[in-house]
């Protein structure tokens, strides 16, 4: 069974976000980039499937991105971190991820004739939370798409999955190959061990050029969110004041 895990390279949640002078892009200097937390769920699930059947499962990790100038902004370093979970090889498509259509087109072009049974994604990346790339890849390859998956089990070429929906969940059966985007629950996050980290250093990491694709969406500018004024402090003995404030705003 061949698995492709696609990951995003995103600013650490705790990082301070600033934009370039023209507002068009994130100011990358001084920012630590991590593997998108939702992608960690699929990496962990792929590692579990690999552990159960080491010779029968092959896992490729892929990211579309260019390495930044600082060691905390290296796509390659994040791909090696993913490999350290016991996965087999990594691919970096050497291009700036300009929009979701561009990224999805790169991934689909790479995956098209490789015979992957499972294409794994996080449900969204924490930079723009767009949830766009996995569904676009599924459509480009004409594969069944299961979004917000919280579990997947595979038996005799059929997958049984659960998917989060409004106020509940769906249990789904699908043939392989399929495209999945993961919600929390798919697997427990894993931390690579020392042996995994050492082995990852010598695993293959292929850097391949992008195919030409015209993006369809542009970022005009970014701006910081409107500043939040100081909060209004309510005396714990005068909760009625809070009730009145909320009533004035039409909230109760």
């Amino acid at each position: 069974m061949k698995i492709l895990c696609c990951i995003s390279h995103v600013p650490d949640t705790t990082t301070r976000i600033q934009f370039t002078a023209d507002g068009k892009a994130l100011e990358r200097s001084g920012v630590t980039f991590i593997i998108n937390p939702y992608d960690d769920f699929v990496l962990a699930r792929a590692a579990e499937l690999k552990e159960k059947n080491p010779s029968g499962v092959h896992v490729t990790v892929l990211c579309v991105g260019k390495n930044g100038t600082s060691p905390t902004d290296s796509v390659d370093a994040n791909l090696r971190k993913a490999l350290a979970l016991g996965l087999d090889e990594a691919v970096r498509i050497d291009a700036e991820p300009v929009d979701a259509f561009f990224v999805a087109s790169q991934i689909a072009a790479y995956a098209k004739d490789k015979g992957f049974d499972l294409l794994f994604f996080g449900k969204e990346s924490i930079d723009y939370n767009g949830s766009q790339v996995p569904g676009m890849v599924a459509a480009l390859l004409n594969l069944p798409f299961i979004s917000f998956a919280t579990s997947i089990e595979i038996n005799n070429g059929t997958a049984t999955l659960t998917r989060e929906i409004t106020g509940g969940k769906e249990v789904i059966e699908s043939p392989l190959p399929l495209v999945l985007s993961a919600q929390k629950g798919l697997a427990e996050w894993r931390i690579p061990n020392v042996r995994g980290i050492m082995q990852a250093k010598s695993k293959p990491l292929h850097v391949i050029p992008p195919i030409p694709v015209s993006p369809r969406v542009q970022t005009l500018r970014h701006e910081p969110p409107p500043p939040k004024g100081a909060f209004k402090k309510i005396d714990p003995d005068k909760v009625e004041e809070l009730v009145q404030e909320l009533a004035n705003k039409g909230l109760i």
Binding site: P11, T13, I17, F19, L26, I126, D127, Y128, N129, R216, V217, Q218, T219, L220, R221, H222, E223, P224, P225
Partner: peptide, 16 residues
């Protein structure tokens, strides 16, 4: 749209 975990606002556009 909202970006970077509510730490930024993005104006996006498309002429497609």
């Amino acid at each position: 749209r909202i970006a970077y975990s509510n730490k930024g606002i993005e104006w996006v556009s498309s002429s497609h």
